[in-house]
Design a protein around this nucleic acid. Sequence first.
DNA 1: GGTCCCATGTAACAAGTTACATGATTCC
DNA 2: GGAATCATGTAACTTGTTACATGGGACC
Lengths: 185, 185
Amino acid sequence: MPLKHAILGILNYQDMTGYDIDRWLQKPIAFFWHAQTSQVYKELNVIAKNNWVESRVEVQSGKPNKKVFSITDEGRIELKRWLGDADITEIMKYKNPLLIKIFFSGNIDLGATMRLLEKYIAECEAIIDSMNEDTRNIPDYEESFQTKEESFYWGMTITYGLMYYKNEITWANWCIEKLKAKIDE
Amino acid sequence: MPLKHAILGILNYQDMTGYDIDRWLQKPIAFFWHAQTSQVYKELNVIAKNNWVESRVEVQSGKPNKKVFSITDEGRIELKRWLGDADITEIMKYKNPLLIKIFFSGNIDLGATMRLLEKYIAECEAIIDSMNEDTRNIPDYEESFQTKEESFYWGMTITYGLMYYKNEITWANWCIEKLKAKIDE
DNA sequence: GGTCCCATGTAACAAGTTACATGATTCC
DNA sequence: GGAATCATGTAACTTGTTACATGGGACC
């Protein structure tokens, strides 16, 4: 469901092609929902069948033709229904493959676990850097987010991301210290 | 993949039935990997075909018969291969449905978003409580975790959980304050 | 000559969800 | 009498992944 509704939310900003939606999913949304391009096109077909979106083909010369999607009234109703739904069971279905690895790390040597955590820290730092980059580019985004409302909530997700990844780094560093202490035992 | 390997990791502690594995997944592992019972039985079939586990039927009277699984040498090799694999692309595939809702909350009223966040905080607090309860019951678990190694890594995941959910609560409260300020504008 | 961007997908497969089915025993 | 525990699944479906296919134009 979240991907379908993310697509509806994006199309509620403006009409666009599957390709454009994919770029949205790769940029401001990527850090809290990643999706394959092929999945985007599939979901577009599904929600078109639900009458949540409709499409028209724009013939282009020199470029591939475009299939431009727009959200329907039914789609807007569905988007608002989903957003306003206070059921959080879906939200609580937490899955973290790193924690599974850590949990069973007694089966491998300490060094491998340390290297994994170090690699993870490096990735988290890279994400924080790119999010800081994004916040410096707020003016660019404010063209897309036409209302103050939109950038207000976008700010909440950015804050989330920064807090989340800093917390991940803090924890991973703490683990590495623990592992070092174990080696020195 | 993670579920298959979580099952291998559990069976590496001791032989058990699908039912027992399901309980493991519901208790110490649940907060970082949730799985349906039906999924557990399905994955057991798949990894049995891979020769990572094998099973024997134990006839019982007064109770349903048991199908007891044990990990094979091939399964142990696969578990260690997966644990030692430093590729973190799988780990970085982050998905957070709450953040999607927040991101598009400009489409609904502030009150609904606040209620969602409050509900989320309550759930996070409940999880923290149950994890604190678990740490008080460490002696019980130490029967299952036969080595110090195992409870060492288990401690890392518990620390992760506490840090993670506290951070979620801090963020959600900050969002609620922001929303309140917006209402008072 | 090579890579990136634009643009849209299909096919096969893996993973996860939801709902349902069965049935005895034990505990309150 | 009702709920929980033990115990194992199937069927139908949705969601996500991986690999592949096509092809022109722009930029270096």
